[in-house]
Structure formats: C-alpha cells, structure tokens
C-alpha cells in the first residue's frame, strides 16, 4: 500500500487537521461576552473546528491507504506547469503593487499581460496594448459613465 502513498495528499490532509486545531485554539483564546445568549459566539466555531479535525483524520486515512483518486495523484508524471501558475500570481502581485499609485488601468494591464504570458501568448507587443485597451474601456464604462469610484492613477488623471 505504501507504494501508492502520495506526499501531496498527506500534506493536504494534515493541513485540514491543523486548520481544525487552529480553529479550536483560536476560539479558546477569544474573550467570552457576558451578554445574555443561551448559545454563545463560540459554540459554532468549536463544532466546526472539531469537524475539520475529524475530516482531516479521515482524509489522512484515505491518503495513507492510497484511496485518494485525484488529478494530482492520478497523473503524477504530468506536473503542473509551475511557471505558468507563477506568472498569474506575479500578475496579481503586480496589480496589487501598482493599483495604489499607478492606478487601475496600468494595474489591470499588467495583470492581463502576465496572464496571457502564462497561457503561452509570447507576443507581448500584442497582448499588452490589448490589455491596456480592455482596462481603459472597463475604466471608462464603470468609472466615468456609471460613476463607480475606482481610484486615481497616472492614466486616470489624463482622462
């Protein structure tokens, strides 16, 4: 049986177990209100934490016995393209960094361009201007015409 053991599934089951324990510990640390309530604010967190612990254990058993049929275990030789995932993450991080100062349009353009790169579109000269146009039109429609306040920025100031 041990030959079918996949480290990924074991890690996931342990993460669920730890989340459950974390929920219970956090709830125990929470101050209790003296207010009138037959069932206080801690009852449901305890129950949910306990259930997550139990589910974590059951998941661990599934993983241990190799009964966990999943995308990640079925085709372990076909690894996830971490570079592509990383590029989308980078897109989000760039958007988060840019959105405050440079504004929504440039942030969304960065997100768009990096996401197209992740999908294998290497023609940045094509995707970047296209992303800019999409972000610009989204901004124009929502911020200018509908009055949704999407913040200020370098391009926004020119509009």
């Amino acid at each position: 049986m041990a030959s079918q053991l996949r480290p990924g599934t074991v890690a996931v089951s342990l993460a669920v177990l730890c989340t459950g324990i974390g929920v219970i510990v956090t709830t125990m640390a929470a101050p209790t209100s003296p207010m009138y309530a037959k069932v206080g604010p801690t009852a449901f967190p305890y129950a949910i934490g306990a259930c997550l612990c139990g589910l974590g254990v059951l998941l661990f058993l599934d993983a241990w016995r190799g009964r966990w049929q999943a995308e990640a275990t079925e085709r372990p030789d076909e690894r996830l393209d971490m570079k592509a995932v990383g590029l989308v993450v980078a897109g989000f991080l760039a958007a988060m960094a840019l959105v405050g100062q440079a504004g929504f349009i440039l942030a969304a353009t960065a997100l768009f361009t990096l996401a197209t790169l992740a999908f294998g579109e290497r023609r940045v000269w094509l995707s970047a201007p296209l992303g800019f146009l999409i972000a610009l039109s989204a901004y124009t429609v929502f911020a200018k015409l509908l009055g949704l306040r999407m913040g200020d920025g370098l391009i926004e100031r020119l509009l």
Binding site: S137, V141, K144, L145, L146, G147
Partner: peptide, 17 residues
C-alpha cells in the same frame, strides 16, 4: 458582451446628468 455593454452604458449614462 463588451460592445453591447458599452453602447447601453453610453445611452444610460447620458441620462443622469
């Protein structure tokens, strides 16, 4: 979808002025 949205939004936005 975008083109359609643009046209309508343009029509609608002329109104609240």
């Amino acid at each position: 979808d975008r083109r359609q949205a643009l046209a309508v939004l343009a029509a609608a936005a002329a109104l609240p002025m």
